[in-house]
Design a protein around this nucleic acid. Structure first.
Lengths: 358, 358
DNA sequence: CACAATGACTTAAGCGCTTCAGAAAGTCCA
DNA sequence: TGGACTTTCTGAAGCGCTTAAGTCATTGTG
C-alpha cells in the first residue's frame, strides 16, 4: 500500500522531472519564473507521485509566516460563543484576514483571564488578537515576550499593541440618561464578571470599578457617573456580578436585584444577553415590561431585535469592529506601524423594553 | 533597540553557555537528559538572551507535529455560531484535546459545503475534524489527498475517517410520533439548508431527501416515514428550506408554512433555532402555542429550556458528542486505529410547546 | 581489579521548503 | 555581428529545531 510509504517531497518531484528543487518550488509559488510547459510538466509529475504541494510547516519555517492568527479569549468556547456579539466580531475578523491567507487559531481562556501563557509561547501564529482579556492576563505577557504583534479588542492597550474598542463609557451614559429621562430613580445594575474568581453575587461599586475587565469598568462608570449627576446616590445602586455568561446564572442575579425593597424600576445590563435574562425573569415574575420594569442592554446583537418586547440597547457596530481589527492585523503583518487606536462610536437604540417610570 | 535585532535561537543559547545545541534542546524537552545544574544554567542564559523557547514552527518541522486540529465548517463563523449546538460541541472538543496540547484552527466554509480545498491543503494541522459538511465537499477531498487523519461529526463517514454522529432518524421519528399521538394530522416541516445554492424556499420531499447534508436527509426521512406509516400523504407535507441559519430567514419560512390553508397544526423543525423562530412568528401572528400550533425542535440546546413556553425537542448529548470526537481525534493522532463509528442516542424531551390538536 | 552499567553530553543527520545570486541560453537592435 | 538585455533554470545557503547513535568519564559489582 502507498499508505505506508513516506510522503513525496519537493525533491522527489524535482528528481522525477529532472529539474532542480528551486524550479519545483517556483512552479507552485512563482509561476512566472519558469516556462508554462515546464510548469505543466512539474505539476503533472507531482500529481502522478501523489505530491500535494509544499508542506505547510516547512514552508512556514522558510518564509517565517504561519498564516495563522491566534485569537485569545478569556473564557471557554461555550461561554464565549453564547454571546452573539463575539460570533459576529469574530466572523468579520476572519472574513477580513481570510483573503490574505490567514486562519484563526482559537485560544480559549482558563480562569486567569486568558489562555495559558505556555500555550501562547508555543502557538503557531504570526500575530495575536486579544479579545477582552483581563488586565495583566499571563497570555499578554507571553505574547510580548515572544515578540508577536498584538491587536487588542475592547481592553486597555498594551505597550506596543494596536487597539480597537468602542465608547463603552459614552454608551453606558446614554443608557442611564435615557432611563433618567423616563423618570426612573431606582436602578439595578447587572454586570458581567469583574473579579478574578468567577463567583456571582452582589458587588459594591468600588469593587466593581476595580474590575479586571476594562469594558466593565468603563460601562459601570458610565452608568454611575450619569446617575450621580442626576442626584442619585450611586453607592446605593445595587450591582450584581454574574459569573460566566450563561443565562441561568444571570437569571439568578436578576432575581436577587428584583427581590430588594423597594424594587428597582429599571435595570441597566452590561450586555444584551444579560438583558434578555432579565426579560425572562420579569416574565416569570409576572412583571410587565416596560410597565413595571424597564430594561436596557448593551451591544444590539440580533436577539435584541427579536425579543418580546424589543430590547432597548446600546448599539455597537460589531461587524465594523471585527473588520477593523482584521485590517489592523493585516497592516501589522505587512510590517506597517498603524497609528492611532480606534474607538468606535455607539448609539442608543430605543425599543419596547423601556418606558416611563410609574 | 533590541527590537530590530534578530531573535536569538537555540544556537545562540548553546554558544553562550558553551554546550551543544542538543543540550539546550534537552533542557526544554527532556530535563532528565542533563544535570539539574546545567539545565538551570541554560535556562538562565536563555532568559538573559531573551530566548523564549524553541521556535514552534521549527519544532513542528522536526517533530512532524503542529499541535493544531483543523475544524472545518460548512458556513461562515457567524452563521455557524448562531447555533448554540455548535458552540457546545466545539467547546467539549477543544477541552478534550487541549490537555494534549492541541488547539483548534478554524476553517469556515464558503458556499460549496465547506472550506476551500486549497486552504485545507496549506493548513497547518495534524488532523481535521469535519462538522456536518456537505457530501463531497472539496475540503474532504483535500483532506484525503493530504493524507490527514479525519474525524467527521454528523455526516456520512468518508473512507478512512472515523465518525461520530447521532441517531438523527430515530430522533426525528420520535418527534413525529409524539405529534401524531397528540392527534395532529396537518404538518409543516422547517428544514435547514438542503440544496447547493442557499436560497430559502419551498421544497418537494424528493428534493429534500436528496439534500447534500446527511443530517437533513436523515431527519427528514425520520419525519416522513413516520407520518407515512400513520397514513399521512408524506408528499403533501409542505417543507420549507431556510437559507443560512439566521432567525430572520427562518421566520420568513415559518410564515410561508403557516399561510397555507388549511393551516398546519404542528411544525416539525430540524433544529431548536428554527423552532424558536417558529415560536416567535406564532407570537407575532397571535397564534397560541400549543393551543393553535404545536412546535417541536431538535437538539435541546439551552435556549430550548428558556423559551416561553418551553420547547419540546429531541435531546442530543452535545457535550458527549464533542468529547467523543476529541477522544477519537487523540487516538488517531496516537496512531491507533479507532474501530467503530459512534452513534449516540437521542431522546424526546416534552415541554410546553406541544399539545393536543384541536 | 576488570568489566559492565550508568549518566552526561556531543555529533550529525535530518525535517521540507524558500530565495538570492548567478549561469546558460536566447532575443533584440543598431 | 556583437553587446546589452531577458528569460529560464540551478546551486547553495539558510529557516531553527529534534533525536538516534555515539563518546567518554564515573560508578557499581562480583
Amino acid at each position: 500500500m502507498s499508505g505506508t510509504r513516506r510522503r513525496p517531497t519537493l525533491d522527489d518531484v524535482a528528481n522525477d522531472v529532472g529539474v532542480s528543487r528551486a524550479t519545483v518550488s517556483n512552479a507552485y509559488n512563482r509561476p512566472d519564473q519558469l516556462s508554462a510547459d515546464l510548469r505543466e510538466e512539474v505539476l503533472r509529475a507531482a500529481k502522478r507521485l501523489g505530491y500535494t504541494g509544499p508542506n505547510p510547516v516547512a514552508r512556514s519555517l522558510a518564509t517565517r509566516r504561519t498564516g495563522a492568527i491566534a485569537f485569545m479569549l478569556d473564557t471557554g468556547l461555550s461561554a464565549a460563543f453564547s454571546d452573539p456579539a463575539l460570533s459576529i466580531t469574530l466572523d468579520a475578523l476572519a472574513a477580513t484576514v481570510d483573503p490574505e491567507g490567514h486562519a484563526l487559531l482559537l485560544m480559549p481562556g482558563g480562569h486567569d483571564g486568558g489562555p495559558r501563557g505556555d500555550r501562547v509561547l508555543t502557538a503557531q501564529a504570526d500575530l495575536a488578537v486579544a479579545y477582552s482579556l483581563a488586565d495583566g492576563a499571563p497570555a499578554l505577557r507571553a505574547v510580548r515576550q515572544r515578540g508577536l504583534p498584538l491587536v487588542v479588542i475592547d481592553q486597555p492597550v498594551v505597550a506596543g499593541a494596536v487597539r480597537v474598542g468602542i465608547d463603552d463609557r459614552g454608551g453606558a451614559a446614554a443608557a442611564a440618561r435615557h432611563l433618567l429621562e423616563l423618570g426612573h430613580r431606582r436602578f439595578g445594575i447587572l454586570s458581567a464578571q469583574c473579579l478574578s474568581e468567577p463567583r456571582g453575587g452582589p458587588l459594591s461599586a468600588t469593587e466593581a470599578l476595580r474590575s479586571r475587565f476594562r469594558y466593565n469598568r468603563e460601562r459601570l462608570s458610565g452608568y454611575l457617573t450619569t446617575l450621580t449627576e442626576a442626584g442619585i446616590e450611586a453607592l446605593e445602586v445595587p450591582i450584581w456580578e454574574t459569573s460566566g455568561l450563561s443565562r441561568d446564572h444571570a437569571m439568578g442575579g436578576v432575581r436577587a436585584l428584583l427581590d430588594r425593597a423597594p424594587r428597582p424600576t429599571a435595570l441597566l445590563c452590561m450586555s444584551d444577553e444579560l438583558a434578555l435574562a432579565a426579560l425572562a425573569v420579569a416574565r416569570q415574575l409576572g412583571l410587565g415590561v416596560p410597565a413595571d420594569l424597564s430594561i436596557v442592554g448593551f451591544d444590539d446583537a440580533p436577539p435584541a431585535r427579536w425579543a418580546e418586547p424589543g430590547l432597548t440597547t446600546v448599539r455597537q457596530d460589531l461587524v465594523r469592529k471585527g473588520r477593523l481589527a482584521g485590517e489592523l492585523a493585516l497592516s501589522l503583518l505587512r510590517g506597517e506601524r498603524p497609528a492611532k487606536p480606534a474607538t468606535l462610536d455607539v448609539q442608543l437604540v430605543v425599543r419596547g423594553s423601556t418606558g416611563p417610570a410609574r
